[in-house]
Design a binder for these strands. Structure first.
Lengths: 351, 351
DNA sequence: GTTAGCACTCACAAGTGCTGAGTGCTAATA
DNA sequence: TATTAGCACTCAGCACTTGTGAGTGCTAAC
């Protein structure tokens, strides 16, 4: 028994209908709604075959058919046609994204917001892994007698600062010297390399300075390097799930929301996924909590190097085609924005 | 008919029981659980009186009694006794708070987390309104040929930075000059004042410089001032509501979550509330969405000046006494931390 | 090979009856 | 006179029943 033309046609119709309505699809409904050209009885036969082949399931004897995960996989791989976005949709995405183009992290967060608005699902966006981010310079700046700001600028445009307290006070010249010394040591190093370096001995010649560095500055410097490595995960539109019949059961809604709350689980799952557009359906997901969800994710790049991820999560019944298009368009926009010379401040140019 | 001793005793028992169980309280249950010293029939009579006086309601004829909002108000004003936290609880709060004492905003966010963990409700924390925050200095720092970091440090310890692009390039000396000039002009001014100032004419003598400032720097400077004024609202523990029978109905849970999602509504509501500890019960809340919730909020201060808010939101049935104590202790901690010399970096001292 | 017809299935909604926790009222009691 | 025991009554919640409609699989006719 093979998947002939007609079977595919029936399967496609069932998937369309079920994605739209979330109700099991019966043979009669199918003939009424779609002009397939054969009777309910024929469709019933085809349905029985499709079920045997594993593409459909049956919640109970007298209910209609539901596409299985295998059916969605087939649909995504073969049946799904690319759904071009309308000009209006594209404009909406681009303009909204550009209207909020400040800091790297804010932009990513905003992209997740746009995505959830358009797809009406829960969207997430992960900032890049910054292992490869290269330190540009480090500076210590005076604030008051006991407070100093530590500022680290990296190539990705990520700027980090932290104020730190120096109980015994300090000289401004010392700060300048330290700034130069740190920049000299760390410039051109990746964050990962920086964390592993030990530069304390550079200050051995001056015991007082060494103590200052060791006790006051170094711990903060290391912590800030680590902070910069951190991956941030932004979620948006979690309450959209209440519009989906899949989550009309409170315990399922709750489980879903709890899953989202475990940011580390989510982050791990996302990190594991490869580059480019990835669609995982139900059981294909590694994490047990996601076994009845589908994820569509894509990667965006900053200067072609650092890689972040963005995507949506929802029930396996989702508009794979439309969502895929939206995500692709969104990541294209992000890539462009983050890659043009001048990076994140490119908005200036357009003025 | 007045609220004699016995009526208060009965009311108190009903409130305790209902807060604990969320079930309407019957006269027999009451005698069984609490050793009140009179029979169910007597209690029934008292209950009928209390109901007539507006302190109790009746979901239906054959159900037990439920405290009205008026009853909670009476309880909060008169009956509630201060519930001291145990040493262990206090330690838990202090140590958790101190363990995460980096940047101002992060600390506030973390405080909300702690609060939601302890109360098992949804907690929120609002960063201070920074109208009164005073600018300490402004600096422009070179990143690469076309990129400059603009850094503003304020007295509250809030540091803001933004990278900006200067298409035509720049000289390092220019940046130094501008840093000095900006600091000279803005130092000691509040953010509000700074936004209203116009310092462009200070550069009139040098047309090229003036253009640079006007076109490239000023817009960012103003935007950053405005960003610094922004109030951030952090929410934590929204999914705790799923443990409350009040929200076992999905549509109520949804409404609650939607309300939380409207950050501007929440922020407005919080801003309107006065200083110190405030408890609003049900209908006392201004916002329509909160008419069946209670809010307990308190204010914390930074250097005795800037005022932020922290609190919890939940059903009117909540442990007013316990929660009040927790919030008071938490704000005390925040106040201390933010007021000691050296402010947010005080952790250093303890090492 | 396709389709009409038919018996069968089952979730769901509406209706029924029972139970238990509650009430209000009245009469007896301390 | 205030309190309490007793009793009839109420009603949500649960279990159970029944009817309906949308679905199925199978068989026989086209």
């Amino acid at each position: 028994m093979d998947l002939n033309e007609r079977k595919l046609k029936v399967l496609q119709a069932i998937i369309s209908d079920f994605v739209a309505t979330a109700e099991p699809v019966g043979s009669r409904t199918l003939t009424r709604k779609y002009d397939l050209g054969f009777s309910p009885a024929t469709i019933r036969n085809e349905m029985a075959d499709l079920e045997e082949m594993g593409y459909l399931t049956h919640p109970h004897t007298s209910a209609g058919r539901i596409p299985s995960e295998k059916a969605y996989r087939l649909y995504v791989n073969e049946l799904m046609k690319k759904q071009e976005l309308t000009k209006a949709e594209k404009n909406a995405i681009s303009s909204q994204l550009m209207a909020n183009f400040d800091e790297l992290d804010k932009t990513i967060e905003h992209a997740a917001h746009i995505l959830s608005e358009i797809t009406q699902l829960t969207a997430f966006a992960m900032t890049p892994r910054k292992e490869q981010d290269i330190i540009k310079y480090i500076r210590l700046l005076p604030v008051d007698e006991h407070t100093v700001v530590l500022m680290i600028v990296s190539e990705s445009g990520k700027i980090s600062n932290q104020s730190l307290r120096i109980a015994q006070g300090y000289q401004e010249e010392t700060l300048d010297m330290l700034s130069k010394s740190f920049t000299y040591s760390y410039k051109g190093k990746t964050l990962n390399e920086a964390i592993k370096m030990n530069i304390i001995r550079d200050f051995e010649s001056d015991i007082e300075m060494m103590r200052l560095v060791q006790d006051n500055v170094m711990p903060h410097l290391m912590r800030t390097f680590e902070d910069m490595l951190n991956i941030n995960l932004y979620l948006d539109g979690y309450s959209n799930i209440f519009d989906l019949p899949e989550y009309s059961d409170i315990s399922r809604a709750r489980m879903f929301l709890n899953m989202l709350n475990q940011k580390d689980v989510m982050t791990d799952e996302l990190i594991r996924r490869g580059e480019g557009l990835k669609i995982t359906i139900g059981d294909e997901n590694d994490s047990a909590d996601m076994k009845d969800c589908s994820l569509i994710t894509a990667t965006y790049h900053i200067d072609g190097k650092l890689v972040g991820k963005i995507g949506v999560i929802g029930p396996t019944r989702m508009k794979y085609s439309k969502i895929t298009s939206v995500i692709e368009y969104l990541t294209d926009n992000l890539n462009n924005a983050f890659t043009l010379p001048g990076g994140q401040n490119d908005k200036e140019k357009e003025r």
